[in-house]
Design a binder for these strands. Structure first.
Lengths: 197, 197
DNA sequence: GTCTATATGCAGATAGAC
DNA sequence: GTCTATCTGCATATAGAC
């Protein structure tokens, strides 16, 4: 009897892991690493509590894995602005919308959590430090300066203004916006008044 | 031998409670109710872990007591705007500054926590619900409308704009502003661009 | 009144059955 | 591979000593 296709088995395993990760991201983002019990993740994923440990050795390991993914996605999102078309204002607006999109939002919330809480594993903190946040914002500075030259953005130190803008954005993500039916509560245009004109 | 002054004893007890409350507010605000261990509060207050229970029967009870205080202070802060002098812009600016002041900040963070987390005791949620947040904001609507008439504030639905403004403020309080030397990181004037002109 | 020592309960992690 | 049952450790809360 020939052995079963090992690739197939590996892929099944990978899919399981993804299933757990999706469930975990959702719960971690909402309740924090301490507030999240493994049983909650298991329930969200529709598996038993014990099975989680066949895929991740510990809650921390799972959390760290998610943080790694989140940072990579964030780095991509910021980098993608380079080769985007549109005016500076439109670029920032698009990035804002992308960040607030529910699929990405949880990742940003996770990163936010790593930065603000000291209950997260040290390794998670290290990963986030590897990509210093200011470096993300630095990528936007040329775009912002161009916008200032065009009269789209207000005058002032670009780094400072961008930092404030993204702080506000981060802060708002932590709050529950009661969009029970998927309609965006937050008006991006109003938000952009912080840096406009 | 005459009995010791009972009032004196009561006052000592009250002072101890205040000492515990001060310590607890600081830790709860930063780490949340779950992330806060009784031992942390005790250490912050400079007393033993067990002694805390002579003054509060449980962690929840202590938390609830703090929420009660916080709501009362907040109600006062919003109500005080009525009989304040100054233009509408100045009133809102003052309120903002008051909220960001470290002594009040922790109270607002606590309330924020009650609203956003579902790990807090139900009784805390009830207390916060007793003073519906929209009612705080409603008190500001006349002020805001006056500001609009004077051309200080932008046009648009006052309730919505104020809600956004205070959401931003709340969100920012949750973030760690690295003001290690007491100098205000946050520029209130920039923040007010959200509702100005 | 305050501290140290102990009991209880819950959640992370493991072991063993199927 | 997955589930249920169990071990272990930590934090809340209590009891007892000073």
């Amino acid at each position: 009897m020939p052995p079963l296709n090992e690739q197939q088995l590996d892929q099944n395993r990978e899919e399981r892991r993804e299933q757990i990760k999706r469930a975990a991201l959702k719960v971690f983002a909402k309740r924090g690493i301490i507030g999240t019990k493994i049983s909650m993740i298991a329930r969200e994923a529709g598996i038993s509590q014990g099975l989680t440990y066949r895929y991740y050795h510990s809650k921390d390991e799972l959390f760290i894995d998610l943080v790694k993914d989140a940072m990579e996605e964030t780095a991509e999102a910021f980098a993608s602005l380079e080769n985007m078309s549109g005016s500076p204002v439109e670029k920032i607006k698009d990035l804002t919308k992308k960040m607030l999109d529910t699929s990405n939002k949880h990742s940003f919330m996770l990163i936010q959590q790593v930065q603000t809480s000291d209950e997260v594993p040290n390794k998670a903190k290290e990963i986030v430090r590897q990509y210093p946040i200011p470096s993300f914002i630095e990528q936007l500075i040329p775009v912002f300066k161009k916008g200032q030259a065009m009269g789209e953005f207000c005058t002032g130190d670009p780094a400072k203004l961008l930092m404030l803008y993204f702080s506000v954005l981060s802060g708002l993500m932590l709050l529950p916006n009661k969009d029970e039916e998927g309609h965006q509560v937050l008006d991006v245009d109003i938000l952009m008044k912080l840096i406009r004109e």
